[in-house]
């Protein structure tokens, strides 16, 4: 992991545009995630928050705009193949960001340990012994140190998601990207995953988080971005955006979310 260059955020996005066919999903987004900060993206479905997250590690190639990860800038021109960016550079950016998916997406034919060491060994070229040692430490850190020999199917949803977080941490990412990490979980399993995410946030890992858990967002976020119809509707500290929204759209969203979703971390 390289040190962030002074004065540069870990992730900097400028004027990002993404459309599918004729539908423009992101209409010029700016985003900065400083080192050690937690940026939370909220918004109703179709607001573009997941698309924005997927653009960050280039699972979606933006039409135009700039994405800089730790100072390495990618400029996109959607008229060209792969946005005019070298596939090797795309893979390098991807391997520097740890992604956690809504549905875990662990590799079902690999044990938990194999899942965690796969990217370090095959993508980053870390020696196997070193990767294994580190993987065991990470699995202990997320509380499933004894599950390393299990296959994903043998674990509960909460355990699988924690394994997925360990997998994302194993590449020593410059930032972690969470795409609704608790949305597929049974309510009683949500808190164990949120606790791990909170520990990581307090440990100073840079994060971009897409979530509907607004109470949790208020607790861990450095900044909340409310996306509305492909643009940033509102942004600011969590207490401001979530308690005292300035725009009508955000106010309506926050009210409806707090009304329907009560689950959060216990304590």
């Amino acid at each position: 992991m390289s040190e962030a260059k002074a004065g540069q955020p870990r992730i900097r996005v400028r004027d990002l545009v993404k459309s599918y066919n004729r539908l423009t999903v992101l209409k010029g987004i700016d985003l900065d995630a400083e080192e050690g900060s937690v940026v939370t993206l909220i918004g109703s479905s179709g607001s573009g928050k997941s698309t924005l997250l997927r653009c960050l590690n280039l699972l979606e190639i933006p039409d135009s705009g700039d994405i800089a990860i730790d100072g390495e800038t990618l400029h996109f021109d959607g008229r060209k193949r792969a946005g005019g960016v070298d596939p090797r550079q795309i893979r390098r950016v991807r391997s520097s960001l740890g992604m956690v998916f809504q549905n875990f997406a662990l590799w079902s034919h690999m044990t938990i340990l194999e899942n965690v060491i796969a990217a370090p060994v095959h993508v980053l070229g870390v020696p196997r012994e070193q990767a294994v040692e580190r993987a065991h430490a990470l699995l202990r850190r997320v509380g499933i140190g004894d599950k390393h020999a299990c296959f994903p199917v043998q674990l509960s949803g909460g355990q699988q998601q924690r394994a997925a977080i360990a997998r994302a941490l194993a590449i020593e990412p410059k930032a972690l990207l969470f795409d609704e990490p608790t949305s597929a979980l049974d309510p009683e399993l949500v808190s164990e995953v949120l606790r791990v995410i909170r520990d990581l946030a307090e440990g100073g890992i840079t994060m971009v988080l897409v979530t509907h858990e607004l109470r949790f967002a208020r607790e861990v976020s450095s900044r909340v971005i409310f996306l509305h119809q492909g643009v940033i509707g509102e942004t600011g500290p969590p207490d401001q955006v979530l308690r005292d929204p300035q725009t009508e759209a955000c106010r309506r969203f926050v009210r409806s979310e707090f009304g329907t979703r009560m689950s959060s971390v216990e304590e």
Binding site: M99, F101, L106, S108, A119, V123
Partner: peptide
């Protein structure tokens, strides 16, 4: 989703085929 996860971690398409797609 598992193929996409491998993509997200920066695997080369041939690695994805050999390590994820083919065994499954």
């Amino acid at each position: 989703a598992q193929i996409q996860a491998a993509t997200a971690f920066g695997f080369h398409p041939l690695q994805i085929f050999r390590l994820v797609t083919l065994p499954q």
